[in-house]
Design a binder for these strands. Structure first.
Lengths: 223, 223, 223, 223
DNA sequence: GATGAATGAGCGTTCATTCAT
DNA sequence: TATGAATGAACGCTCATTCAT
């Protein structure tokens, strides 16, 4: 997927450090207040640069947002690719999937917030290509289940789609916990002060229920 | 929980019908365009009342939104209360829960949209008290599981919290399907053109896996 | 020619006096500084109304200009129609034409200025229909000459087009005198402090040279 | 008349070629888009020099315009001086005057456009000294007529001023044809597809009517 | 109480001008 | 001297809110 480029050459020529600073501040603003409620002027001030400079870096406010998003698509993709390894045990993979999901959510809550803001309110405005990433991530869960069944690890009776949907929903909810106060409260209400690894472990118990192992046929020979 | 009152006495004295019409139109606008992109003027026009009157009903635009939200807290509460009957079979109740969830989502997608819009972008702006409703709804699932275990229907080994979290996540995801294109796509990707009752049936299979029945002790007597 | 309507109903409902005041001030600003150099804010201030009101009267700055122009099309048309009477002596008509031209120029120099500003710099931007008036005026001169020849008053040897162009050019130049300092100086340089009627008289002498009378054929019968 | 100097020494020290290129491009921009709509940045880019350099050549945008104008005063003066030769036949001179006028208009429509733009919209802004050129050119026509009468070629009855004004007006109108769509249309309406020399010929017929020859008294003796 | 015109702060964006390198 | 990034005042326009009738 080509994601284009929404910033100017001037921005590109800035030191990586300065680029980061500007983008991070913008991310924080957008995440905190939503895109529409954020002001370029305020972002500029907080970043310690002039208002005009913002426009020499990003032709429009939309472009600033798009820059933020595209910058993170590759990052997330990379993280997932590095973590999920089809050759591994399926539950290991799913566990990794949840672990990574929670890690991303914890480290980049603002990005998740922005992502949801867009999915929610600006779907018609922003390039559909940009809104694809999440789905690319999702497919993985279903794939993993399919692989597990194909390999004979998982019961062939498993309803792949609804099971994948269920598991995916849990991950979405966890993702949201990093963002909205509501979801955060929900998480706390159910998991208290548990650490993320502990939460993942609990969830994996549920996952194993949803995805039962293939009944070992050795029971027959045992009798 | 005090949810306060955000409209004026003048609005209260309007006929119920007129109140409804105004609120419904506002709901539709907010849901379609987002809160910030909606115009009081346009809402007034579509409701067939004067611009000025809007301000005699709701002191500010925020108050209009708050009125909408608080008005619906009671409605949703009522619906759930009517549907969930603790005396019924637990799975019957959970099934009803999903059915009602999907029904509300289908009939009032605008409200869900507004809800998420606020949770997402206006959390700093709107009173936290207002953001409580969803949680009140949620508690039900956990309650049901607890009841099920207490009655001896469900296995006492069930991890109540994580199970409730999982089931609740599925319902959240379904709710979101009525609103965001992304979630809508996800639903279609996993369930195709299945009807809501069919989807609920599939999900109930998952739910039953998550919530296993108590092992019948009759096995003991059998020996 | 339908010229549409570029102001809002709100403006229409204003007292004629207030409408006049606003328009006159805008005319003055546009004439003095040119359209692009004029500021809505300043016009509002000078008219003693709020900035926002300007936009409730005229949706855009362009619309304000268009309103000014269309408002005056009818006026000028009327004036010309009332003055030129094809049945009159041709030179009487041409004289009236110049008299009216000078009168309009003197009473509405700003309008002429705006007109030229547009013709000069905004020809691509403003509706071509709007830029027609001047030409409608022009045709008259050629018509008058044609009528004069047809009636046997003017010499049939007259080159209608170039003669009309010449006479029209003089009138354009006089019109411009009301506007640009340059043209004003030119006029003064050639006519000194002469009054407009005196100037018209002088010009009519030139016109009569350009449009010689038909040679009376009675000379033939006389021999 | 002191026309001052509006560019810097740095600009002066540039090669004549480079100076020309910069100025020509600026002229084109100003003429095409109007002064206010032209961008220093774009001119710099098109001229292949840096943005900053423009400001080392011309302290302000206004100064660039002023430089353009003063530069062309001398040029036009020269052209007219070379073409008009008082010793020639008066009609030959006037014909040359029109020919040169049309040639300049055709070759440098941009300059005419700028000239009119200023005369129209920036008269208050730009130094009056700069707005003098045209008049210097104009004087010529009156001079020629005066010379013609003095030499006994033209009828002494000719009203010098109004005749000069009339002829000059025609030339102004032709000049404008190179610039404004309206004037262009007017020209086409009256002269169709005639070439410039043909148009000049037609106009000279009018000119000869305006400026009758002195009645030769020798005709009497001739009989 | 209803109406809708009046108000003006605020926004995204532009671009002449300045300035650091 | 050349370069091009940095700056911020200014503009057209919007719209929540106020206010006169």
């Amino acid at each position: 997927m080509k994601t284009g480029k929404f910033h100017t050459g001037i921005f590109e020529r800035l030191s990586a450090k300065k680029q980061e600073r500007i983008l991070n501040i913008a991310v924080k603003e957008f995440a905190d207040k939503g895109f529409l409620n954020s002001r370029i002027k305020e972002i500029a001030q907080k970043a310690g640069i002039s208002y005009g400079s913002m426009y020499s870096y990003f032709p429009t406010k939309d472009d600033l947002l798009k820059t933020i998003i595209t910058r993170n698509i590759d990052f997330q993709k990379t993280v997932f690719k590095e973590t999920i390894n089809r050759d591994d045990d399926i539950f290991e993979n799913i566990k990794n999937f949840f672990t990574v999901t929670l890690k991303i959510a914890e480290e980049n809550p603002e990005l998740i917030a922005i992502w949801r803001d867009i999915a929610q309110s600006y779907h018609t405005k922003f390039l559909p290509e940009i809104i694809q990433l999440e789905q690319e991530g999702l497919i993985t869960i279903r794939d993993l289940i399919q692989t597990g069944i194909a390999r004979g690890t998982l019961s062939p009776d498993i309803m792949i789609n609804s099971s994948a949907y269920a598991i995916d929903s849990i991950s979405s909810e966890l993702l949201a916990s990093s963002v909205s106060d509501q979801n955060k409260k929900k998480k706390k209400m159910f998991f208290g002060e548990k650490t993320n690894p502990e939460i993942v472990d609990e969830i994996m118990i549920i996952v194993r229920k949803i995805l039962p192992l293939k009944q070992s046929t050795s029971s027959f020979t045992a009798s």
